[in-house]
């Protein structure tokens, strides 16, 4: 039982940062969902704050999120681990790194890659994975994902020249 997100997006006060902290927390988590949905639908892995201008402003309503609001929103998303900041850009995890990691590991085990070495680049843009959901993922994004596999001892990453390779266990 809840109000669909689409209704909030055409509701004017949704664009003003709320003074009541409980309401504000609700608002931030609703907005996080808006951002993640947008990133997912448009396959945005790496973004800047401006990447989301199309959702954070509504010209029909003549409303937009203030700089202060956007700042809080992305801080909130970082805290919730939806975002990892990387220099001036951010990696947007519309699926948790662990979920991506599972997908990659499943592919590796289904295709007999356990024990072999793959380059990270080949993994996300090679001919072998074109039909996988993780195909097209940027290398630096994939590295964050593979870190979680490394943590659970299912893979190990190492540098080869100036690129990265991974071995699955």
């Amino acid at each position: 039982m809840d109000v669909p997100l689409a209704k909030f997006l055409v509701w004017p006060p949704f664009y003003t940062l709320q003074p009541n902290l409980d309401t504000q927390n609700q608002q931030l988590s609703l907005w996080s969902q808006v951002i993640l949905d947008y990133a997912k639908n448009n396959k945005i892995y790496v973004a800047t704050i401006e990447s989301f201008d199309r959702v954070t402003r509504n010209s029909e309503l003549n409303r937009f999120l203030s700089e202060e609001f956007k700042d809080m929103l992305f801080k909130h998303m970082k805290k919730q681990k939806f975002i990892i900041a990387e220099g001036l850009s951010m990696l947007i995890f519309w699926q948790k790194p662990e979920t991506w990691a599972e997908m990659i590991y499943r592919w590796a085990s289904n295709s007999g890659r356990i024990g072999t070495v793959e380059t990270v680049e080949g993994l996300v843009s090679g001919d072998e994975t074109t039909s996988e959901e993780f195909y097209g993922m940027p290398v630096n994004y994939a590295i964050e994902v593979l870190k979680t596999l490394q943590k659970s001892k299912k893979a190990e990453m190492f540098a080869v020249g100036d690129s990265y390779a991974v071995k699955f266990f």
């Binding site: 006060p13 949704f14 709320q18 409980d22 003549n62 409303r63």
Partner: peptide
């Protein structure tokens, strides 16, 4: 929590 503020441009 019954009211939300809407600051118009």
């Amino acid at each position: 929590g019954m009211v939300w503020v809407d600051a118009l441009p």
